[in-house]
Design a protein around this nucleic acid. Structure first.
Lengths: 123, 123
DNA sequence: GACATGTGTCAGATTCCTTTGACAGGTGCG
DNA sequence: CGCACCTGTCAAAGGAATCTGACACATGTC
């Protein structure tokens, strides 16, 4: 969590859009009381597993939570999620600074790629 | 700045979803350099007036900016927008606290209320 | 083997958000 | 009056995000 000073535009955008959802806020709230595994978490919040799975991925992609697959003593595989101690200061200046580093509009980027020979993606 | 300590869930949700958009972040960035009126702002950012209008309303609804209709010396009506000095601390605890005060999907709630006399909860 | 628990993914339906173009005013100026 | 600038709103289209049900797989227990 090294974004105390100035997070990049894309990073902040990802965080904000990830947190700007009631279900995901509740997930964070649930994880704030301790780590938990998917099924129990789904039961706890009251949503389906597939849906929770999607929200968890979104939160993890934003770097707000992290999941680890562990084995219970009984031998069953269980994926535990816990939240990452993040900290963002939301002020006009911070948002403005981040906005200036936005590389958004991938569409525009792709347009550029069509012009520029984009040397394949390491595949 | 009336939300230093603990913003309500709905308020924080509105703020986060408002800021979680590249165009709106850019709008905040543009307004950070000073107040401006709609048409000029649209030209400045590079989007259409109707679209900008919608984003401005979203930001204003979240309490992040404020607009005032003024008259230029020539007599033309121009709507100036300027940003409000907001400040939110984005931490797991803050989000968790806000999430607990979240109003349940008003839509679903209303629907349920109309059908069933609400007999759940209280567990 | 049947059952309950855990994991994950998929396709499809839905709903929400975003975006655009056209429209309807208003004013001042040549 | 016609042009340029300002304001606002509307409906339709497009796309992205959300949500659901069904599926496949693994494990331990009865």
């Amino acid at each position: 969590m090294a974004h105390g000073p100035v997070p990049s535009g894309d990073e902040l955008l990802k965080v904000l859009s990830a947190l700007g959802n009631p279900h995901r806020m509740r997930i964070v709230a649930a994880l704030a009381e301790g780590r938990n595994y998917v099924s129990a978490l789904a039961r706890d919040i009251g949503i389906g597993r597939p849906l929770l799975h999607m929200h968890l991925q979104r939160l993890e992609a934003a770097g707000l939570i992290s999941g680890s697959l562990e084995l219970s003593e009984s031998g069953k595989a269980m994926k535990f999620y816990e939240l990452t101690p993040f900290s963002y200061a939301l002020t006009p200046q911070a948002v403005a600074a981040a906005a200036r580093t936005l590389t958004e509009e991938e569409r525009t980027l792709k347009e550029e790629e069509k012009k520029t020979p984009v040397k394949e993606t390491s595949t």
